[in-house]
């Protein structure tokens, strides 16, 4: 279950940052540092998570989307 979510999250991230491959992304490292992503990317990630999982990440919670593992946990507990 969480494995499927993780795969999808990694796919979305690779779409946003095509320079990276899913296998290269560290699950616990900060996404901003690791992938050099900005608020536009986070916005797109939140939009895609909503479209894919129906999980609405309100702006107040966007700070939680710091690592892949935290994204997966957030989706798993909110869907």
């Amino acid at each position: 279950m969480t494995e499927a979510i993780q795969t999808t999250v990694l796919d979305l991230l690779v779409e946003l940052a095509p320079e990276f491959e899913a296998g290269d992304i560290d699950l616990d490292e900060d996404l901003r540092d690791q992938l050099d992503i900005d608020s536009m990317d986070i916005h797109q990630l939140a939009t895609r998570l909503y479209e894919t999982f129906g999980v609405d990440v309100p702006e107040s919670d966007r700070a939680e989307l710091t690592t892949v593992r935290r994204c997966v946990a957030y989706i798993a507990s909110n869907r």
Binding site: S39, M40, H43, A46, T47, Y50, E51, P58, E59
Partner: peptide
């Protein structure tokens, strides 16, 4: 902006930019 964003689904939300 926060009030507006809270009232619409994620695809319609705006960034401060």
């Amino acid at each position: 902006l926060a009030r507006r964003n809270a009232s619409v689904p994620p695809p319609e939300r705006l960034l401060p930019a």
